[in-house]
């Protein structure tokens, strides 16, 4: 299996990145599934990454514990800002969460003694293995897929369709929204903590506006109808640049064109395209 060893040696980081990016896509799927446009995921990722990296770097905390705390702290922060913030809707919610993200980034940049400021944290031990990422991914997917068919999932879908009607039906809309937001933050934090431990180095600029938009793109591109959509979005957005490497200078251009084409021909997300295949498998006729 020399070929496999060589493959893993070359592409392990890429595969791990696919894993953490899918976690990020799942984290934004949670809020999108409730019809909430929040883009604080990059900031939660930063909090998770810095928390876990500082713990393993400076206190020698066991990796598993660092991961857990890396997911918990962002969840806690989400709980605090979630209550006032989630009253907002649409682009105003997006802006508030974007502004929050920017504040987090600047605070990390300025807390030089702790975070190293712009110089970042380097020499982070390589502790994340393929198993860690696979385990986190399977766990997250399992939970989210269970939600999708349960009371929680139906409540979220109802909120997305019509918030006021759902409230009138006696559901605690605010609690469901907060739940999605906090769980999303935990997933993003976990992704950040895992990512920090296979890239040796983190710096505040990785978690800015561009990352926030990229996470959103993964969520929307894949489709917000199912957790599988988020998985597809994360995989496509991470692998596409690598698959296009042979195009050299044209790589970013083609990358952009492919994104546009996907969206135009599958505006509901890539997952939506697989609907026909799924229908055929379950024996029902495909509907136009």
């Amino acid at each position: 299996m020399e070929w496999l060893d060589n493959f893993w040696a070359t592409y392990s980081t890429l595969l791990l990145s696919v894993g953490t990016n899918v976690l990020l896509a799942l984290s934004i799927y949670l809020t999108l599934a409730c019809g909430l446009l929040t883009v604080a995921n990059a900031a939660f990722m930063a909090i998770g990454a810095y928390t876990a990296a500082l713990l393993t770097l400076q206190t020698g905390t066991p990796f598993l514990l660092a991961l857990i705390l890396g997911a918990l702290l962002p969840a806690l922060v989400a709980m605090l800002i979630g209550r006032p913030t989630l009253r907002l809707s649409g682009v105003y919610l997006a802006m508030a969460t974007l502004a929050f993200g920017e504040v987090v980034r600047i605070l990390i940049l300025n807390a030089e003694d702790l975070t190293g400021g712009a110089l970042g944290l380097n020499g982070i031990a390589q502790l994340t293995t393929g198993f860690d990422v696979a385990f986190a991914l399977i766990g997250a997917l399992y939970v989210l897929l269970r939600f999708a068919g349960s009371r929680i999932g139906r409540a979220m879908a109802a909120i997305r369709q019509d918030e006021i009607a759902t409230e009138l039906m006696g559901l605690n809309v605010r609690a469901y929204k907060l739940f999605a937001f906090v769980l999303g933050a935990a997933l993003a934090g976990l992704a950040g903590a895992l990512n920090a431990h296979f890239t040796f180095f983190i710096s505040p600029n990785e978690y800015g506006f561009e990352r926030a938009v990229e996470i959103l793109a993964m969520g929307v591109l894949g489709g917000t109808g199912s957790p599988w959509g988020a998985v597809l979005g994360g995989v496509v957005i991470t692998l596409l640049p690598e698959l296009l490497r042979g195009f050299g200078h044209y790589r970013p251009l083609i990358n952009g064109v492919v994104l546009i084409v996907i969206i135009i021909y599958s505006p509901q997300g890539i997952w939506d395209l697989t609907r026909f295949i799924r229908r055929r498998h379950s024996g029902k006729p495909a509907v136009n």
Binding site: T10, Y11, T13, L14, T199, F200, F201, P241, E242, H249
Partner: peptide, 17 residues
């Protein structure tokens, strides 16, 4: 010659390749 786009993950991927 490989393009690493000035991004950290790209840098790692290119180095490994």
């Amino acid at each position: 010659i490989e393009d690493e786009q000035g991004k950290k993950e790209e840098g790692i991927n290119v180095f490994k390749k």
